[in-house]
Nucleic acid binder design. Structure first.
Lengths: 190, 190
DNA sequence: CTTTAACTGTCTATCGATAGATAGATAACG
DNA sequence: CGTTATCTATCTATCGATAGACAGTTAAAG
């Protein structure tokens, strides 16, 4: 065997992630994916029985990896502004990398076509991100109530996803930069 | 003949619009569309030779209708806050109507799969909206420079699109409401 | 140590469904 | 009659998914 199961699993996940971030869940095809990693489409079904399984695994991994990175940030610095700068940089780098989008953001747009198991994972991504932003905000605004913090965090998350979406649609990363700058100057983002 | 060309044109546009707002451009199919309006898929090609033609017509109409409504708003009241309230209400009503999205927002997510003629129209939608918000902001902040106003307007547009996207992904319109409220309380939206 | 058995990963071939698109016939309107 | 709108029928391409075969690997049995 050329590759172990784990290796192929990873290769498939990586290729699938790139495709979804660039063209969405609907554009993800077993045939194209197979060609990219050098096997046949039937073999992809060996690793991921259904497309829903692949999509859910993809979103779950994406959320986990993100959560890991965010936890590191939170442990590195106590400064809310510094954390948020790093956070907005994550979404910026997706755009800088072939005009890609947040995997869960693009899946949210395709919501109605997602299998239930994928929807669940997409929801968890939003939850995880809002939870992290809430903890960052708690440092900057210790006086605020938990509910206020969560609403603010959700607003920040949505605003950043929107900045990415619009900048992508205009194929102009400067739009993302300008928008984030405006978020900061109004005080939406610390 | 049961209907005139214009009637059928309108019926097709309306059905297509609903589908795209609910499931995106990729989910738009001539067969389904034909079934919905009671003709055969080949007949749809008579009205719109290619899918790109239909998509572009759809986005153009969407932008035009929106621009017309926005112009009325601007003529009705000089109050920026009132105008922006009406504006956010537009995006809210899409969500309230079967969890739909802004047609151009959802198309931005599918950007890579769009024919060039559709991309052009999607760009114009953003341009039109940002232009309108800029004029509204000019009333509230007459001292600001044109460039500052435009950046602020783009940020508002992106933030609202993002609020819609995230609320849709979570299937919870309350998230939209809370997010808009947060935008207002931080001063991002007048 | 060898033989047998099960497992793993990939293959070929194929299924039914659906996609967008086209050609040519048909029916109705003016 | 000629134009307009829609039809039937069909094409090629692609989709996700499945069945069955086969080679290489591992592990247990004798």
């Amino acid at each position: 065997m050329a590759r172990t199961k784990t290796d192929m699993h990873e290769a498939l996940m990586a290729a699938a992630k790139a495709t979804v971030q660039a063209r969405g869940y609907n554009a993800l095809s077993f045939r194209e994916l197979a060609k990219e990693v050098g096997i046949k489409s039937a073999s992809v079904h060996y690793h991921f029985p259904t497309k829903g399984d692949l999509g859910a695994a993809l979103a779950r991994r994406y959320t986990e990896d993100g959560a890991t990175y965010l936890a590191e940030l939170l442990a590195t610095s106590k400064d809310a502004a510094w954390c948020m700068d790093r956070y907005t940089e994550i979404f910026r780098s997706a755009l800088a990398n072939d005009n890609r989008m947040c995997l869960c953001g693009i899946m949210s747009a395709e919501f109605d076509d997602l299998p239930i198991e994928v929807r669940t994972e997409v929801d968890k991504f939003a939850e995880t991100n809002v939870g992290w932003i809430t903890r960052v905000l708690a440092r900057a605004k210790p006086a605020a109530s938990e509910q206020q913090l969560q609403e603010h965090a959700m607003a920040i998350f949505a605003a950043i996803e929107g900045a990415q979406l619009v900048a992508r649609g205009c194929q102009d990363i400067a739009i993302y930069d300008g928008t984030i700058r405006a978020y900061r100057s109004t005080g939406l983002i610390p």
